[in-house]
Write a protein that binds this DNA or RNA. Structure first.
Lengths: 149, 149
DNA sequence: GACGTTATTGCGAATCGTATGCAGGTGCAC
DNA sequence: GTGCACCTGCATACGATTCGCAATAACGTC
């Protein structure tokens, strides 16, 4: 591959991201650093296409296949989590485990602290046998306050 | 089209399905009758591919595009509902409104009566602003009892 | 700092699920 | 029975995702 962006270009702004990658047993490469930085900086859940577009906007034209693989690996090692929704999968960084609330209309993803919903979730588990999924979190679909009006 | 299966072949076994179609403003055609019958007979949530395969297994080789359109129309008029999940969309008949519980591992869809979960759902709406979506139902993702072990 | 091993990347192509355009056939109101 | 709007089958296209492979970079070892 060409790897036109030497890691020094990103190193300064990512003091602990490289350590984070290594701690998860991953090599510290430019594409991973940038992807990880973008995910944690956005604070939202983004699709692979959005990651690609934003990286390309920053002059970092990583291949889409690379971004897919990167995000999949991040999910595997627990650095990120995937959220199914209308349209493409969305990814977010896994800092603190939390539940996800997805609007089936606009696709917006909202995080909810696990503690906040523990009571309701317990009741649901009791009723349905449904357990929190990957990363100890539950995913809920419905209409957000904006779309339900 | 060829419509090699005259509707008489299905008519006998679908006394109210044709009425149901008409009541929803749809024409009563072989493909729609068969699809509707299959959905309500299976009692589960099936994907378009499964509908195609099962219809073909019954010697009714309806085109995949037709099945897609049929299911989309059913969803539009409220005869059926779509459930997002891992893999392709799944469809079920809309008899009584209910919530859906989806296993993110195996994709199995489980129905839960709305009344059963009203308390938990109210609490969730309160916390997150999430309202029941299309058909007044909520969609929950996690791991079913089988997959969570 | 040089070197070798191995993981990672870019590129191209394939796959899968879904949607659409069009021409011809069918259901149903009259 | 007839005509017209609606449906269907076929072909094709599209977006999202995955895969194979050769080139290349990261990192441990010397």
């Amino acid at each position: 591959m060409t790897m036109t962006q030497p890691s020094a270009q990103h190193g300064a702004a990512t003091p602990d991201h490289s350590a984070l990658l290594r701690r998860h047993g991953l090599r510290c490469t430019a594409s991973r650093l940038c992807t990880l930085r973008l995910l944690s900086a956005s604070g939202q859940h983004v699709s692979t296409a959005e990651v690609c577009a934003q990286l390309q906007g920053m002059g970092l034209p990583f291949d889409q296949a690379t971004v897919y693989r990167t995000l999949e690996i991040f999910t595997e090692v627990g650095l990120a989590h995937a959220v199914l929704g209308p349209g493409p999968k969305r990814y977010g960084v896994s800092s603190v485990p939390h539940h996800h609330v997805v609007c089936e209309e606009c696709g917006r993803v909202q995080d909810v602290a696990i503690a906040q919903m523990s009571e309701a979730v317990e009741r649901i588990t009791e009723l349905t046998g449904l357990h929190a999924g990957a990363g100890g979190s539950l995913l809920l679909y419905g209409r957000c306050s904006r779309c339900s009006t």
